[in-house]
Design a protein around this nucleic acid. Structure first.
Lengths: 340, 340
DNA sequence: CTGTTAGCGCGTTCAC
DNA sequence: GTGAACGCGCTAACAG
């Protein structure tokens, strides 16, 4: 094992451990000559300070935990890239926890708030419920939410209602009346109102505003995924009076819709308009019209917020909320409805 | 901060810290009555042992570091999912380091092999050079390579030469003679022979075997990315005698080729055949014919190997090498060449 | 400026 | 069976 300790160095350099520690931490009050000797000893012994011991005595870990429904969806990857970029700049290590099911999440919330191992916590998308929030806050560990809502924590979010509105409005302006909405399951097992539910709200609002009646059969939900979305779209297109446009709550689901259209020999956008949400990379490949949200930026902003908290900064509004802008990306999967 | 320590618990339960520690670690020799009292105290104080201190005295961290050119390419995401799955089962935490440039990598290799903070190390794709390997091995920390080669470490790999051969052979059997190969830059800054170079070798071999002359103008390389690939394909298609098939060293690059074909108003596969490598998720969306490699599985195997090493298992062959199978996925971007 | 000492919070001996 | 003391490697506070 890597066994040379600070004491070995001190002995070899003929100084005390305190001095070695000072050299290590660039403390100013060390005579140049002494510093030389110490550094020589360090080099000669190939000594590396033990980070664990360091943490122990400093009470900080230099670790930031990120809880995320990890690699499942491309949008998280984008967000995490943003997070990582910032953390790396500030010399923090990223401990990533992949949370996909309820069990794992419970376990995590139970184990995490030790307050010792992590200096801070970044939670993506699966925000805490009230009980968890309580525990988290009691632990005193700084927490920032990304794409999740809880009044007690600083967070970076988007206006999903607005997003749903934007997408639907776009379709309406194109002349569509028969507009369907498909999404993942709104009542998530995490008992919180998810993004899709808020996008649904925007959809309803745009419809209402344009005087278009909401048709329950035009609204479907299922687990997130291409296949499931494809099936939903399939069902939609088999309707006696099928929609002329489909708004999918995520680009991934929009892909499923595209697949279904192909199955039905429908041309997009001539026969069927499709719009997604997120603007992940694939969206561009597929020329998918979609609502862009700043994924990478959300990670950056969240991480920066957390780091400012770690540095002891306090905020004017007790809990800052950063809202990122949305914009419609008009590619090639939407067009006016077929003339008949 | 979370400040209740083992001493508080001991005091409250009217026992010594040793006893508390025993209760915590389920040590048998604790009287039931005492254990009761201690557990009550633990509950009352909401005490959680400090993992850092625990690591310090136990000499283990329960952390596994993963070094990867992180979120850049979808294929890594797939691999990491596999890794995470296994690690979670064995109660290891995953510390993920995003290494994309040489500077960061140097820094990492300098800092990492402390032998203290990580129980094990998983290196993806960017394998160590001899000097780094030396240092790594000297540190005594168990290392497993995934998709990287170095004779000193156990690794899970694929036969990239075979993969390149498979792809090219498929094209040849379809009747193609004018077959191009595009890839990222073979002489990587990491001074090791990368996957693309080995796939290139397979390409050359298949060509030679079929008696087809290699044409230097049919071989291009540039940085990895859709745009770059698109440009390469563009140049290829402008040739006086353009290829009738293009083999891209990765699916991402194949996407660029598809784009270029579209620009040139070439139908795929009627006018141009395209084959990729990896079989990432998008490949399916795009109906891309490609060479499938077990990405998720590579993560699983690598992590399992590492864990066995951590458990002190030794291996028959000094350094085990797991080679995963490749197979051609025949979708809809390859066909016989245009009849004339 | 620099050596010494006291913890950081645990696990692990020892004696009892 | 159980408590007290020691040590993990390092930083910080205090003398000198």
């Amino acid at each position: 094992m890597s066994s040379t300790t600070i004491r070995d160095v001190a002995k070899r350099a003929g100084v005390g451990v305190g001095t070695v520690s000072r050299v290590l931490n660039n403390h100013p009050s060390v005579r140049e000559a002494t510093r030389q000797r110490v550094e020589e000893a360090i080099a000669a012994l190939n000594y590396k300070p033990n980070p664990i011991a360091r943490q122990l005595s400093m009470g900080r870990s230099h670790n930031i935990a990120v809880i995320a429904p990890f690699f499942i969806r491309p949008s998280f990857v984008e967000r995490l890239r943003g997070v990582d970029t910032v953390l790396a700049e500030h010399d923090y290590d990223l401990v990533l926890y992949n949370v996909e099911d309820q069990a794992k999440r419970d376990e995590l919330y139970h184990v995490l708030p030790r307050g010792d191992f992590f200096d801070g916590l970044l939670i993506l998308t699966l925000g805490p419920d009230d009980e968890e929030a309580e525990r988290l806050q009691a632990s005193g560990i700084p927490v920032v939410l990304i794409d999740a809502h809880h009044p007690r924590f600083p967070r970076v979010i988007i206006d999903d209602v607005e997003g749903g509105y934007l997408a639907t409005r776009h379709l309406i302006e194109l002349g569509h009346h028969r507009i369907a909405y498909i999404s993942d399951i709104l009542e998530s097992p995490f008992k919180q109102v998810g993004a899709s539910a808020r996008r649904y709200e925007g959809y309803r609002r745009a419809l209402a505003e344009a005087g278009i009646d909401f048709r329950p059969e035009y609204y479907r939900q299922d687990h997130h995924g291409v296949r499931e979305a494809q099936q939903m779209a399939h069902a939609l297109l088999e309707l006696p009076e099928p929609p002329t446009a489909i708004f999918a709550a995520s680009d991934t689901q929009a892909i499923g819709v595209l697949r279904a259209a192909e199955e039905h020999r429908l041309r997009v956008p001539q026969d069927l308009s499709v719009i997604g949400f997120d603007d992940i990379e694939v969206a561009e490949y597929l020329n998918l019209t979609t609502v862009h949200q700043p994924l990478f930026t959300s990670g950056v902003e969240g991480a920066e917020l957390l780091i400012r908290m770690l540095n002891g900064e306090t905020f004017d509004p007790e809990t800052p909320v950063i809202q990122l802008p949305l914009r419609l990306i008009n590619r090639q999967t939407t067009a006016p409805p077929p003339s008949r």
